[in-house]
Nucleic acid binder design. Structure first.
Lengths: 122, 122
DNA sequence: CTTATTGTATTATTTAGATAATACAATTTA
DNA sequence: TAAATTGTATTATCTAAATAATACAATAAG
């Protein structure tokens, strides 16, 4: 199994998430040329078709665009990237509190737990 | 598609998570009898075989046990449940901060975001 | 005692996802 | 110009997951 991928979800979705994060985190910058489908597939140790699917989905989202034979590039729409980063963060926070609530922790209890964790790490 | 289930992960895993949460949150209490496989499957709108798989996996974890023909019951090991609740909470927190870090937020930045969200909700 | 309900097992079919193996057209590169 | 590289498309095969349709043994319920 490709490293850092699990069996619980479709691989192409996990690839999408990983690449999306790399774009947002600036590993790939606006306008950057991505490695070829084949190289990315090699890196991730997945079949080229699987990587192709992930990339074409990211294209549907507007995060990347392809230029027939010169390669695939990161969008130059920085505003879009900023917006996406904010949206993903909010979604993470929402989902996190939802899960903690299901486990039986109130918002304040969760906050207290988090503050403890952060203290330990500093 | 069964409500509150998605297509991104195997259904039996999602069922396991849901039931596990219900046990921890006290929807099902230690010693309680669970509805029959068939009834649970009806409720969740999934095939009985899928529910059976989820339940037998939860059994492997020790969360439930089955008594051949009288039904299936929640473990009475309250210590185990308490431990599990703590573990799941820690896991959630860890994963959350990991994701936020990938998005480019430091621990403090994440904390600040959270505090804002909590303020709004109170 | 009879019936209904329980967990469990079995076999078959269908579907999505992943892989495999190529092929092609366009264009960049040498 | 010739060769290599690009995204893309196609067809086939394999597997896990889900569904479907039953069946059985044990026991609880009437």
């Amino acid at each position: 199994m490709p490293s850092s991928l699990d069996n619980d979800r479709p691989i192409y979705l996990q690839l999408m998430e990983r690449i999306r994060l790399d774009i947002i985190a600036g590993v790939y910058k606006p306008g950057d040329k991505l490695p070829s489908v084949r190289d990315l597939a090699l890196d991730a140790a997945v079949n080229p078709n699987t990587m192709q699917k992930a990339l074409s989905e990211l294209e549907r989202e507007g995060l990347v665009y392809s230029q027939r034979t010169s390669g695939r590039f990161i969008t130059e729409d920085k505003n879009m990237l900023k917006q996406l980063k904010t949206n993903l963060a909010e979604e993470q926070i929402r989902q996190f509190f939802e899960k903690m609530k299901q486990l039986g922790f109130t918002g304040s209890e969760t906050l207290a737990l988090i503050e403890n964790v952060l203290k330990e790490e500093m």
